[in-house]
Design a binder for these strands. Structure first.
Lengths: 198, 198
DNA sequence: TTGCATCTTGAGCAATCACTCAAGCATTCC
DNA sequence: GGAATGCTTGAGTGATTGCTCAAGATGCAA
């Protein structure tokens, strides 16, 4: 591993992530990555070790981006549950990325059987996001926004399943309008958690 | 295109589907397909034209399998909505395939950008399944099982999004128990469509 | 048995794959 | 200025990719 000086490591990761996101791991060649990053093969290997190492680093960056996005929505919204609902609704609004699946799901499906390293890398990212969703729900409970009897982990998993489905659904050619509808549906299901049962 | 005699075309498709399902389009080499089908390269090209042609044929077969499964559940269940609910619950029970994503979603995500042929092939399969779900809902309306005011296409899309999410979720390593829980959740959401509003 | 048509075979094609490494270059230190 | 250090470079590695096609095997009719 070598510290990038001339070529900024963060920029390389962003460019690499973009390429992998478009074409997947097997569909992206080192030539593609050279073009995308503007780096030469030697530099890529010096910085990331291997194509797989590059992919894992890009995937980690993706996970951090999603977590940051989630926290941003949580902090800017009126309440934790509104934060989650807003996060889901934003999927339909992000023009650049709305037609792209969740990179973690993409990884999981591409390497469903086989590459254990990438699979585990994806799983840990998914688990981190699930935990963050759970944290928001717990915060909602503390505020009295959600029922204390809510099974947080179960609800968090259900929300994440919805997001996974939504982002996969969004890859369908020409699905823009219905993605917005579905996102709204899911958001209002999340808002139903506000109602505290007796 | 040549009629397979020695090598049964259906068996070749099943074996090819299995390989593509495990490793994806780019992750499966012709060598892998030769091993999986027991065919020699020349025969594969005579029968399917190209690797892509083989993939499309296998994907079509997959779609037909899913549709047949959906219809089987519909005909064996007590009612159309029970048929849909049972179809979803069965995802968690199928031991062989429960750890596998929906092949159509896998195709959509792998070729999200790029291969238009495969993308369109996946989209038409997804649309066919959505239509079949819609047919079941319409049948439920005719029987008075579901409200006449139910927006069939919207509900069908929502159900399919849930199934997409569920099957992706099922790829997570060691998710078996929670997949069953999620499947049950989704099934009971489908059953709520039974309640006819005033 | 012979002649013809069809099917099967697998060695081999050019292209591409992930990856390496010796040489060139720039910078930094004394 | 000169030596040392370490990053950058890209031609080149052997392996593998999707795919072809001439030659051999096979079946059938006469």
């Amino acid at each position: 591993m070598v510290k990038l000086t001339t070529h900024d490591r963060a920029a390389a990761l962003a460019a690499g992530l973009d390429a992998f996101w478009q074409w997947g791991f097997h569909g992206t060649s080192m030539k593609d990555l050279e073009r995308a990053t503007g780096m030469h093969p030697g530099s890529i290997y010096a910085a990331f070790g291997s194509k797989r190492g590059f992919y894992v680093a890009a995937l980690d960056r993706y996970t951090e981006d999603v977590l940051a996005d989630l926290r941003r929505h949580a902090s800017e919204a009126a309440s934790p549950i509104e934060g989650l609902a807003g996060f889901v609704e934003a999927v339909a609004l992000d023009e650049d990325r709305s037609a792209r699946s969740c990179m973690l799901v993409k990884t999981l499906l591409e390497h469903g059987e086989g590459d254990e390293t990438l699979r585990r890398s994806a799983e840990s990212g998914i688990a981190a996001i699930e935990t963050e969703i759970g944290n928001n729900l717990r915060r909602a409970q503390q505020r009295g926004e959600a029922s204390a009897s809510l099974e947080v982990e179960h609800a968090a998993r259900r929300i994440q399943l919805n997001i996974m489905g939504l982002r996969s659904f969004a890859c369908r050619p020409g699905a823009n309008e219905s993605v917005a509808l579905m996102a709204h549906d899911i958001a209002s299901e999340i808002r139903k958690l506000k109602q505290v049962p007796s």
